[in-house]
Design a protein around this nucleic acid. Structure first.
Ligand code: MN
Ligand code: MN
Ligand code: ZN
Ligand code: ZN
Lengths: 142, 142
DNA sequence: TTATCGGACGATAATCTTTATCGTTTATAC
DNA sequence: GTATAAACGATAAAGATTATCGTCCGATAA
């Protein structure tokens, strides 16, 4: 149902107060067809087939918009620069989805269970790294 | 025990077949004193106080060496470029520590339990994102 | 339908992070 | 002490992302 899809995307844009542009709509539709965890460059390469004149900057800007709107999600909250872990204790992380702040939380404090060391595909488990995604106290106030 | 610390670091280097240089040793000692999740730039700023002539490239190279040797650990396995999640299902990720390949694993398949939505510091939980760190099948063969 | 206006676009420069290059210096083994 | 390979510092280059800015277009209302 192309018409229905179009209406859905139109509504989606209205909900988020953004214009329904040709580039934005094609980008959305192309992304819907993709699998795995594509990078902006990979998305760009696909969209270019349908809108050859599109700019990489437009792809970045709209992916960010989609992520902010909750239409798509980024694989990792901390994909920025390299960070070194200085906490020797067994622990996991609380990551604020607003300000990206990373706070340690002890393994016991988090209270997860059941670590299998056999996983599909013959994957050999070394350890679990849990990110608790949410809103930190400061960002809840604002 | 400075002498003892020095011997420890010397042994550490010998185990990993790397030379004991002044820069490398100061870098190691400075990092040991740091807390949280510093970036290479932040480490560089600290080390520069003791070895003003050190290069940022040297900091990067040695942090990588330390991480490879298991002396320090990076906070996130996927801190590279932005990746968009295209899998709608509730799932987590298996991340290969050798080749960095990311594979989906269903939430039920992983079989974790207990999601608290109250965490220390008034952190409001949205979701859990689990990275299972390990070695993928391909890298196990090689 | 048309005029208006703010948002969106494309091109590209700029920024930020990380890596590669290369001549010089230094640690290690003999 | 000398030879050799590794490590260093300076800096260019690469890769990813963002900022800038002139132009264009979609949304709104006359
Ligand atoms: Mn930590
Ligand atoms: Mn996934
Ligand atoms: Zn926050
Ligand atoms: Zn692998």
């Amino acid at each position: 149902m192309l018409v229905n899809e179009a209406r859905t995307f139109r509504e989606l844009c209205q909900e988020n107060g953004i214009a329904v542009t040709h580039q934005r709509q094609v980008l959305y539709e192309v992304m819907k067809t993709m699998h795995g965890h594509p990078s902006p460059e990979e998305v760009y390469a696909q969209v270019k087939k349908k809108v050859p004149a599109i700019s990489l900057a437009t792809v970045y800007k709209n992916i960010h918009l989609f992520v902010e709107s909750g239409v798509f999600r980024e694989v990792s909250m901390h994909h920025g620069s390299l960070r070194v872990e200085m906490n020797d204790e067994s622990h996991h992380h609380m990551v604020c989805s607003k300000c990206k702040a990373i706070t340690d939380i002890g393994e016991k404090e988090l209270g997860l269970v059941s670590k299998q060391d056999k996983l599909p595909g013959g994957f050999l488990v070394e350890r679990y790294a849990v990110d608790v995604i949410g809103i930190c106290a400061k960002c809840q106030q604002a």
